[in-house]
């Protein structure tokens, strides 16, 4: 009896120790990032101003703002979305609503996993070989955005597929039994009840696309351009590449400047991410069935 209690105590103590250890490990992953973000804010904060966001770089990019990079990132993201969202949603619709359980579907799923795992620099090589050279888009927003679109396609497919799968099968069958075609069922029941989930995934993709650097380096993003892009056939500056350039390629940059650029980039990416997460939580709270 006593022995049992003592064993119990010892077990409880061991359990507490393990718990503490795992908690420490979790915190050790998160804390450095918190510290780093704080440093970014402290060092980059002073550079931020309305002028910084809305003027062009001056004096060989050692002063001035980031307007062309900001505008360029918006161009790249928007064109990439126009290319990837329709294809990604179609792919997800196929996998969730049509695909039979056969070898082709298995290969498609494997291809999606692999597409997500291809290194970003290999995507860049593909972009150079396919869009810049073979399709003759040259180094342009079009080529860079298509490269980004290929790279982030798995994000759209996977998140859309999850959103579609969250719609109960019973709803589909009820519709089919009324004589609705598959497409009518998708349009009337499946899409209206998954569109917010799909949107969540798209926002996530925006955040991912905005931060990518390697895929656009050789396909359309320029180190420095004194003008804003006018069409998809122009080159453009981009926020992510701009951070790389001012922190490694340009001499005599005041310390605050790259920190400012980094802060804007990470602010953009994390706020998109936060919006996506917030959206998802609101959705979870609003039950429709």
């Amino acid at each position: 009896m006593f022995e049992a209690t003592e064993l119990n105590h010892r077990n409880q103590r061991t359990e507490k120790l393990w718990r503490l250890l795992f908690l420490m490990m979790t915190l050790l992953l998160i804390l450095p990032v918190a510290v780093i973000l704080t440093v970014l804010v402290v060092k980059g904060g002073p550079s931020l101003s309305i002028d910084f966001l809305f003027t062009e770089p001056t004096q060989g990019m050692t002063a001035g703002g980031i307007l062309p990079a900001l505008v360029g990132t918006v161009w790249l993201v928007v064109v990439a979305l126009i290319a990837s969202v329709p294809i990604g949603v179609a792919a997800a619709l196929y996998l969730s609503e049509y695909a039979p359980d056969n070898w082709l579907t298995r290969i498609i799923n494997l291809a999606i996993i692999n597409l997500a795992g291809v290194p970003s620099i290999v995507h860049a090589l593909f972009g150079v070989g396919a869009f810049v050279a073979f399709f003759r888009f040259g180094t342009s927003i079009l080529a860079a955005s298509l490269t980004l679109a290929v790279m982030t396609l798995p994000v759209v497919i996977v998140s859309t597929r999850e959103a579609l799968k969250a719609v109960p099968q019973a709803f589909r069958e009820a519709c089919w039994n009324m004589g609705a075609t598959r497409w009518q069922t998708i349009r009337k029941v499946v899409l209206p009840n998954s569109v917010s989930g799909i949107l969540t995934g798209v926002i996530l993709e925006v955040s991912r696309t905005a931060g990518e650097t390697a895929p656009i380096m050789f396909t359309g993003a320029a180190f420095f351009l004194p003008f804003l892009p006018q069409s998809v056939y122009d080159q453009t500056m981009a926020l992510s590449l701009h951070l790389f350039v001012v922190s490694t390629q340009v001499p005599d940059v005041p310390e605050g400047l790259p920190f400012g650029v980094a802060l804007v980039l990470i602010g953009l990416v994390l706020s998109m991410n936060a919006v996506s997460i917030g959206f998802r939580m609101v959705l979870r709270g609003k039950k429709k069935w």
Binding site: L29, I30, V33, I36, L40, S120, S207, R208, A210, G211, E212, T213, A214, S240, L241, L243, F244, S247, P258, A262, L265, I266, V269, L270, N273, A274, I277
Partner: peptide, 13 residues
């Protein structure tokens, strides 16, 4: 959120 930090920012860090 950690997973969302772009790699160029990590490089800069």
């Amino acid at each position: 959120m950690l997973a969302a930090i772009p790699s160029v920012v990590w490089g800069f860090i």
